[in-house]
Computed example of a mutant assay.
Amino acid sequence: MPIRLPLLPPDPSAPFPPADGATRDPNGLLAMGGDLSPARLLNAYRHGIFPWYSAGEPILWWCPDPRLVFRTDAFALSRRLCRDLRRSPWQVRADTAFAAVIDACARCPRPGQDGTWITPEMRAAYVELHRLGHAHSVEVFDGPRLVGGIYGVAVGRMFFGESMFSAESGGSKVALAGLVRILRGWGWPLLDAQVENPHLLSLGGRRMPRPAFLAEVARLTALAAEPGPWTARVAAFPAAALAGPTPD
């Protein structure tokens, strides 16, 4: 039987349908239509909703249950990666290569996925959010070469991760760890990872029931945090710093 979804009205500030009306299969499909304007996207994220669709489809909006999240005070890299990082020349930066990160995420092959959901329209929408100071990237460089990165959206004191990539083994893990370090330093407790997969679970992602997640989103997005580029707030730092002190 075809799924009948609510169609979003033209007003980007109009309420989304209640999350408990989302489908169970597929998990979390809530609504369709609308646009990818900054106002619509920020409205969605403030309510724990994100767009995800393929080329040729209408815009689809999701709010899955459970939600995969990272607690910034409980994230840890593997001992093996920490050992490698202690002698790594990599450097972590923020908001210095947003377009390059989103382009690399679009090109990155995904298991079981044909093509990319980062359509030209999605790319343009998030580049505009970045220009407005709401979307951010954390990048990992080996000299001048970008070897890993992650990007997402910040609203209040909540960060919603969108996608990450590796051009070298461990690049995405280091980007994620760098983002967690930044958020933890600011007292931001939660990083949304949207939909679970084995890779994210292996990194310490945790399932959170949707009602609990939405309550946290409502609380954290309401807290004061000025939008703007992170380049002035986040100084570049060596990836080796993510490994912690050298064991005795």
Rank of each mutant, 00 (worst) to 15 (best):
P64K: 04
W188H: 08
G152P: 00
A225K: 02
S169W: 06
R219F: 03
G143L: 08
M158W: 07
G33N: 00
E128F: 08
H47T: 14
A31C: 01
R87D: 15
P12M: 01
R46H: 15
S54V: 13
P18N: 13
W117P: 00
I150Q: 15
P111V: 14
P120I: 03
L183W: 02
I102A: 06
P18Y: 11
S169A: 09
A218S: 08
W90C: 07
A215I: 02
L203S: 15
P189V: 01
S88T: 02
M32E: 13
H136Y: 13
E139R: 10
Q113A: 08
G161D: 14
W61N: 08
F213I: 02
G244D: 12
P238L: 08
W117E: 01
R233V: 13
R86W: 07
A154Y: 12
P198E: 15
H47Q: 08
A74P: 00
F16I: 05
D65R: 13
G178V: 08
R83M: 02
W62G: 03
A104M: 14
A22E: 06
L85I: 08
R207I: 10
A39W: 11
G170H: 03
S169C: 13
R80C: 11
A76G: 11
G244Y: 09
L30F: 01
A243P: 14
T246E: 15
R233I: 07
M1A: 14
G21L: 12
I49F: 04
C82K: 15
A177P: 04
R210V: 09
P38F: 01
P51W: 04
T72C: 04
A97H: 07
P51F: 09
E168W: 08
A167M: 12
I182V: 04
P89D: 10
N197L: 11
D65L: 06
V195P: 06
R40A: 07
E57L: 02
P198D: 14
C105T: 03
S88G: 00
